[in-house]
Simulated assay, not measured.
Amino acid sequence: MARRPSKHLRPARPLSSGHASAQTKADGAWVVRSVAGARATKEYRCPGCQQVVPPGTPHVVVWPAEPSWSSPSALEERRHWHTGCWQRRP
């Protein structure tokens, strides 16, 4: 049986922006999508507080509306935030 390639070598999984909203923060425009606790199956590190977002915790996935110069796709820059941490962000 063939092994799956490392997740770090696979292209970013496309996210549907159908349930996403556009938000503007001090550093630009962002796309924000809510993740229900039942759909949150992995552990992530919140870039706002550097604490773990445990599986089962409702949170938001955020990515820039436009990719940075160093990234071919804005989706590669997506991050999982605690909802409160994202809302408090200027």
Rank of each mutant, 00 (worst) to 15 (best):
K25T: 14
A26F: 15
A26K: 14
A26G: 04
A26P: 02
D27P: 03
D27W: 11
D27V: 02
G28W: 08
G28C: 06
W30C: 11
W30I: 04
W30Q: 09
W30N: 10
V31L: 12
V31S: 12
V31T: 14
V32R: 11
V32C: 10
V32D: 07
R33H: 08
R33T: 12
S34T: 13
S34R: 15
S34A: 15
V35A: 08
V35Q: 13
A36Y: 11
A36W: 12
G37V: 04
G37H: 06
A38G: 01
A38Y: 09
A38H: 14
A38Q: 13
R39Y: 15
R39E: 15
T41E: 12
T41Y: 11
K42N: 13
K42P: 06
K42A: 14
Y44V: 02
Y44P: 05
Y44Q: 03
C46P: 02
C46H: 01
P47E: 10
P47A: 09
P47K: 03
G48R: 05
G48Q: 03
C49R: 00
C49E: 00
C49S: 01
Q50C: 11
Q50D: 14
Q50V: 09
Q50T: 11
Q51P: 00
Q51N: 13
V52I: 09
V52W: 00
P54V: 10
P55Y: 02
G56T: 11
G56F: 04
G56V: 04
T57M: 01
T57Y: 00
P58E: 07
P58A: 06
P58L: 02
P58R: 00
H59T: 03
H59G: 08
V60A: 03
V60Q: 05
V60T: 05
V60E: 02
V60W: 04
V61I: 15
V61G: 06
V61N: 09
V62E: 02
W63K: 04
W63G: 09
W63Y: 04
A65Y: 02
E66N: 07
E66L: 15
E66C: 08
E66M: 07
P67A: 10
P67F: 01
P67V: 12
P67L: 09
S68D: 06
